[in-house]
Design a protein around this nucleic acid. Structure first.
Lengths: 326, 326
DNA sequence: GTGAAAGCGCTAACAG
DNA sequence: CTGTTAGCGCTTTCAC
């Protein structure tokens, strides 16, 4: 490995001068600077980031936690958050949760040298919150929900559930199915609570199905086998709604004639003509990811406590083919 | 920041002993070990990764480069590669390419402390290959294509294009449209070359449309406005095929009756009933991502040169509704 | 404007 | 089994 000492030798200067060329070139005489730069190129020297951050106590790294990227919600979060962080000059360390052992991903908090942590949609379990709090590293929830622990930027999940309820009540359903996803996902719990609140006193029976996809497939079938089966299905995420559409097709239902389907999240896919899934999501012009990274960066720079509280954005409804009954 | 010296003081031992407790606890007497561990917990001590990697010259980091995660190809790559790397104990640093300035992402190669680099689907431009070669860091292409530079693990793109050609020739098309995506994506170029080769001597006219989505929308419209318009569209990726389906729907075409659509990549979406896109992809049981990470890890551990050559997996066809003409 | 020297927090010999 | 010591590669005073 070539170090700044090697460069110094070749250029015939001291190691300190090499460091200056890298960090304060304006404080170096033009000829010296050129000599050193030539040596750097010749040796293909690359400064050692570990040594630098040992001194500066800054790693330039943000750690990002999220669920698997095959779920559009997660992929959208990761994509936007990473891009915004990159634009601010940060390097992003990504940690993807394995749904089979959801706790284990949080062990990374113990060893990360990240300056900030951003938590997207995932299952918060085990020591996660405790690790976060004791790490001393600024953290922020975005799209996920930390409950009342730390600050959260994202859609107001409770309102989303409530809005879903209000919207489908106008359809006068006989019975409604709730596709809930993983029970440990706080975000989805909040959506469900909002939904139940919105359905209160409607007298409509709610059939709730939860679990991960494999489990859902079974319970979903069971739900549709009942005498009073739902004529409207609300899904806690667009991702599950996609699978619902798939099941319904397999079982011979017409959407929305037999059964209407409503998602939450308003993913890119849902807007495509071939899917055309009605969904509840953020107003079009809001970039919560940029806001989240901005806040995180502020917390890192100013050691800001981040007690400005949550920024819960009110969702809106996007009506598409899967609910558009004539 | 609390260091091992602080822990040592509190525990009444030398700093070296603290280090031993962390790395070789079996070489420490039980009572001492307990004293030190107590101090570690009390002070909430976390070893400084920078200092460690300064000594070991190992960062435990793999750098991953890919295109935006809203494209299913990219998301699948990132997801699987990250999960496999995590299982091997690596931390993954993710670098997402901004399509507006595709070169800039590669600057990260100059400063990364990663021990290995994995390059997924993206546009390789500018100094990318040169940076890779001079970095001295082992690298591997997966899903992307480095041409003949370095080793590649993934689908044989040329064969995929050829297979697409062979398949659609059986449909006796009058004219065929090729939706090509970004011209600078080597992977897509290879698919096209294979396609052209497969169509040779068929006498069928190929209309090629390339560019990113905004551009494609225009050229696509132009393509369909021609007198002899395609009755079969082959898309270089499933992602573009999705948009094609969307356009066709808007313009009043029936798929596959008026126009058949074939994708390449066999994304999860394409298999869903609501999309049911015929596509060309890897045989079901192959995990190229695990293979890629395994090879990269081997290159890191053994400083293996990685000259085992490319592992180009032969693709197969998944026939679904968008081409199933009766 | 440049060099010498002191560490950043840790691991790894080497003594004892 | 435990303490002492010498760096890892770099930035940053402090002299000259």
């Amino acid at each position: 490995m070539v170090s700044s000492v090697d460069v110094a030798k070749l250029a015939g200067v001291s190691q300190a001068t090499v460091s200056r060329v890298l960090n304060n070139p304006e404080k170096v005489n033009a000829p010296t600077l050129e000599k050193v730069n030539a040596a750097i190129r010749q040796l293909n020297y690359r400064p050692n980031a570990a040594a630098r951050s040992l001194i500066s106590r800054k790693s330039g790294i943000i750690a990002l936690f999220c669920g698997q990227l095959d779920e559009p919600d997660n992929a959208e979060f990761a994509n936007k958050a990473v891009i915004n962080a990159q634009q601010k000059g940060y390097t992003v360390e990504i940690h993807i949760q394995n749904p089979e052992k959801p706790e284990s991903v949080f062990n990374a908090i113990l060893n990360t040298q990240a300056e900030g942590i951003i938590i997207g949609p995932l299952i918060i379990k085990g020591m996660a919150i405790e690790y976060l709090k004791t790490s001393g590293i600024p953290y922020i929830f975005c799209g996920s929900s930390g409950g009342r622990e730390g600050i959260t930027v994202g859609m107001d999940n409770h309102s989303a559930g409530k809005l879903a309820a209000e919207y489908i009540r106008s359809m006068k359903p006989e019975a409604v199915g709730w596709l809930g996803g993983n029970q440990s996902d706080l975000r989805l719990q909040e959506r469900y609570q909002g939904f139940v609140e919105g359905m209160k006193e409607s007298g409509v029976n709610i059939v709730k199905v939860t679990g991960d996809m494999e489990d859902i497939e079974l319970s979903f079938t069971a739900m549709m086998a009942q005498k009073q089966r739902p004529d409207v299905i609300v899904s806690a995420t667009d991702y599950y709604a996609g699978y619902a559409l798939d099941f319904l097709y397999d079982y011979g239902y017409a959407v929305p004639e037999d059964i209407a389907v409503l998602g939450i999240g308003n993913s890119r896919q849902s807007a495509m003509n071939y899917m055309s899934l009605s969904s509840i999501g953020l107003p079009g012009d809001i970039n919560i990811y940029e806001e989240a990274i901005n806040r995180l960066a502020a917390m890192i720079d100013n050691s800001e406590k981040g007690n400005r509280g949550p920024a819960d954005v009110k969702p809106v409804i996007y009506e598409r083919r899967t609910t558009r009954r004539k």
